[in-house]
Structures are given as structure tokens and as C-alpha cells.
Amino acid sequence: MKYAVLIFIIGLIVCLVGALFKITHWSLFGFSGNIMLAIGLFLQIIGGLLLLYNLLFAKKSNDL
């Protein structure tokens, strides 16, 4: 569960940096804003799907 949230947060940060790069027309080591936005969105999707998977298929506990 914590890995899903971590991946989602990293994707969010990459998206925010990508938006900054796109607005200011910067490029860093060949990574432009478009590439960073795509990578960040991909990471957010993966993190969200992992989170949903963990919520739906988590082992049920019989403890009350």
C-alpha cells in the first residue's frame, strides 16, 4: 500500500516539474516538459491502479 502512494506522489511531483518546464520552455538533459508530463501521468496511473488493487483485493482480517 505504501509503495502505491509513494509512486503516485513521485508521479505528481514529476508532473508539477514537467508543467513548470513546459511553461518556461526549459529542457534538462533532453527531458522537456512534454516528456516529464507523460512520465508523471504514467506514474500516477500506475500508482492509482496499485492503490485500487490493494484496496479491492486486500487480505481480509477476522479481527474486530
Rank of each mutant, 00 (worst) to 15 (best):
K59E: 15
L64R: 03
N34D: 14
L51G: 12
D63P: 08
I45V: 12
L37D: 02
Q44I: 04
A38Y: 13
L20P: 00
N62G: 13
A38W: 05
L12F: 08
F21E: 11
Y3E: 07
I13C: 00
V5G: 10
L41Y: 06
Y53L: 06
L43T: 01
L52G: 08
I39C: 04
L20A: 11
L49A: 15
L37R: 01
G18R: 06
A58L: 06
S32Q: 11
I45F: 08
M1K: 07
V14P: 00
G30P: 01
V14I: 11
L50E: 12
L37W: 03
I46V: 15
F42E: 08
I46M: 12
L50Q: 13
I13E: 00
S32M: 10
F21I: 07
Y3M: 09
G11P: 03
S61M: 14
F29E: 07
N54W: 07
G30Q: 08
A58N: 14
G30W: 03
V14F: 00
V17P: 04
K60T: 12
L64E: 15
A19R: 09
L20H: 10
A38T: 09
D63C: 13
F42M: 09
D63M: 14
W26F: 03
G40D: 00
M36L: 14
K60A: 15
K60R: 11
G18M: 05
V5N: 14
F57M: 08
I13T: 08
A58I: 10
M36P: 05
F29Y: 10
G48H: 02
K60C: 05
A4F: 03
